[in-house]
Design a binder for these strands. Sequence first.
DNA 1: CCCTCATATGAATATGTGCTCATATATGCG
DNA 2: CGCATATATGAGCACATATTCATATGAGGG
Lengths: 118, 118
Amino acid sequence: MDKGSDTCQTLCVHTEVVERVSARMEPEAMLFELADFFKALGDATRVRILHALSFSELCVCDLARLLNMSSSAVSHQLRVLRGQKIVKYRKEGKNAIYSLDDYHVATLLKMGLEHIAE
Amino acid sequence: MDKGSDTCQTLCVHTEVVERVSARMEPEAMLFELADFFKALGDATRVRILHALSFSELCVCDLARLLNMSSSAVSHQLRVLRGQKIVKYRKEGKNAIYSLDDYHVATLLKMGLEHIAE
DNA sequence: CCCTCATATGAATATGTGCTCATATATGCG
DNA sequence: CGCATATATGAGCACATATTCATATGAGGG
């Protein structure tokens, strides 16, 4: 009934291993950030945006056309990606031209596709 | 399906670029799978599980203790990870011993952490 | 056999999230 | 300036999802 009761309360745990792993774990805060980063990659619209940007920089309008979505929806998702520093942009006249911010991202996408392809 | 009204309807789009990118895009279905894969990585509990498993195989009970969570919650998340072939397990007596399924995963976690650390 | 423990899973619930719609900002043009 | 276009953003809604709770399955030990 208390929280512990649903957790393994006996010595079933491999205590030494758990402690050894526990000591090597990154700080919680970093793992939360990591989760937020992957969460930003974990959406079909955003994956399609990033995949497109891995070929060429594009403005919001281009992306909307390419994905057959409203530019509002695209802009909302770009905001999420900007928040995680996954894309960057520059203004060029009326347009905002987006590109991948970080060389890691294209690599992550490629590795993800490799994993899928198994 | 007429998103045209909110999309850029003039020639603001860089037509040639859009077409060139469009031709190189992976099939939709694959990008959806990719999104589902990253979605499975995009949760703090699951990231912590995977990070722990990158050091050692562990049973559900170990993970629950390590993360200070109910084994039920852990088991639910392991189910998600199994569904994406991110972890595998073997039965050993009463225990289910989990480990990372794929060498890609540890690498992806490491690359993610590098991205964060900028 | 019972009984216990480790794990799995369905239902319910609370929280999160992606899209649409309306609106705001900003740039360029006549 | 006044107007159209490109982008950004807040609110609201519909849907997804992570945890808890209750229960089921299955392995070992008395």
